[in-house]
Amino acid sequence: MSGQGTEATSHPNYVKVYLALLVLFAISVVGPLFGHPWLTLVTAFGVAAVKATMVAAYFMHLNIERRYIWYLLFTMVAFMGLLFAGVAPDVLAQGGQNWRHVRPAQPAVGHH
């Protein structure tokens, strides 16, 4: 009802945050178009992390929430890193496990 310009002073200017997010979004789309793997990694995923952090900090107000909520959410992300670290050696790298079927030189005896 009241005028559009009344911003609460304790809050960030949401429209500015939004515009910053749009700029980052543009970077994340344009960056990978060059086809350089490292540039893709940084622009697509690095920028995504920055964007998500900005959304969490300014839109979800985590920057003015109790500090331990950050820690809580970050711990959950860290557990996912742990899951990845524990599982990746099996799902990702199968080197040295000799899973290819190699015929034995002689047939095994005594199994019938």
């Binding site: 742990l82 524990g86 050696p89 099996d90 790298a93």
Partner: peptide, 18 residues
């Protein structure tokens, strides 16, 4: 308790270093 799970899989062909 989050760091022990793969002890259920020692014979499942997981990476021996793990």
């Amino acid at each position: 308790s989050f760091f022990v799970w793969a002890h259920h899989q020692f014979v499942a062909g997981i990476d021996p270093r793990m």
